[in-house]
């Protein structure tokens, strides 16, 4: 038996710049330049009908002193917070259910997985329209009719400000769960099965197995998923636009939709850019916070 040759670091490790340059250039062209351009517009007086005439902090001051901003940020915080928790919990439950079903060779697990994934490929606008039909509060509305058969309701799904936010969360969870499910499914399949066999020999119960094996070993996946889902949810506006338009009043107007409205109703390109930078900062802050709190490799 001959020993495998030790490959060691190649010549590229001594000269990494040429190898990294293409990736850096692509990232700069497609990510850094647009971000810097938005930052430039945020410090200008540009509108949709007038190009920037110079440096100005008026848009920055105007947006930050807008009385609507605290309400919008509050709505965004609730929307993102509830969605992130719900998406993680529901996604994890479905992923573990599928893994358990596959372990027991139950039929239909592939179909179940496909069914969940189907919601993921629905465009945001279509998702909003689908749920708007389901939440229709007319006497013949789908969900209220079903509730009526059970002697419940009707529910003011979209006309009540608090309930409208709940409805927006439901629509987003329905669509976004598949992504969490995929992340957790892949991570769960990556856990060494020997650990579960040892736990079975030790007669550990399902809750103990989950708490002592599955959850700790999914910690990294949970952290990554939290970051991805948080940023996705923070940027969600198309499904809300189709579902409620941000109403009633501002009840479901999240920061990304507020940004959209600032640009396309106000025609305020500089103000919209300030809000886009704010979205970027919030997303970055959440990412760093999550990675600092739970993203380190488990020891």
């Amino acid at each position: 038996m001959t020993a495998r040759p030790d490959r060691g670091p190649g010549a590229g490790f001594a000269q990494p710049v040429p190898w990294l340059a293409p990736a850096v250039l692509v990232l700069a062209a497609f990510y850094a330049v647009p971000v810097l351009d938005v930052a430039r517009l945020a410090l200008s007086d540009a509108t949709m009908v007038r190009p920037a005439s110079g440096f100005s902090t008026e848009a920055l001051r105007g947006v930050l002193s807008d009385p609507a901003l605290p309400e919008v940020l509050g709505t965004t915080l609730i929307f993102v917070g509830v969605n992130v928790v719900a998406l993680q919990v529901v996604g994890l439950v479905i992923a573990l259910t599928i893994v358990r079903g596959e372990g027991r060779e139950l039929p239909g697990m592939a179909a179940f997985r496909t069914l969940v994934l189907a919601a993921w490929v629905v465009p945001g606008i279509a998702n909003g329209l689908i749920w708007r039909m389901l939440f229709d509060e007319a006497p013949y509305g789908t969900l209220n009719s079903l509730l009526g058969y059970a002697g419940l309701g009707p529910v003011a799904w979209l006309s009540d400000p608090q309930m409208a936010l709940v409805s927006a969360v439901i629509a987003n969870v329905w669509q976004g769960t598949a992504f969490s499910m995929i992340v957790f499914y892949a991570a769960r399949r990556g856990i060494d099965p020997v650990l579960y066999e040892v736990a079975a020999l030790d007669a550990a119960g399902p809750w103990r197995v989950f708490r002592s094996i599955t959850l700790p070993l999914l910690r990294r996946a949970i952290a990554v998923n939290t970051v991805l889902v948080s940023v996705q949810t923070l940027n969600t506006f198309d499904s809300i636009l189709a579902l409620t338009g941000g109403g009633p009043g501002r009840a479901t107007e999240v920061l990304s939709l507020f940004t959209f409205n600032t640009v396309f109703y106000n025609l305020d390109l500089a103000g919209g850019s300030v809000l886009a930078v704010l979205l970027f900062v919030l997303g970055l802050g959440m990412t760093l916070a999550v990675l600092a709190a739970g993203g380190r490799n488990p020891s």
Binding site: S159, D160, P161, G245, G247, P248, G249, R250, A251
Partner: peptide, 12 residues
């Protein structure tokens, strides 16, 4: 739109 939504839903 915001004004009417707030008033009709009893928010303002």
């Amino acid at each position: 739109q915001i004004m009417l939504g707030d008033v009709l839903s009893g928010t303002a």
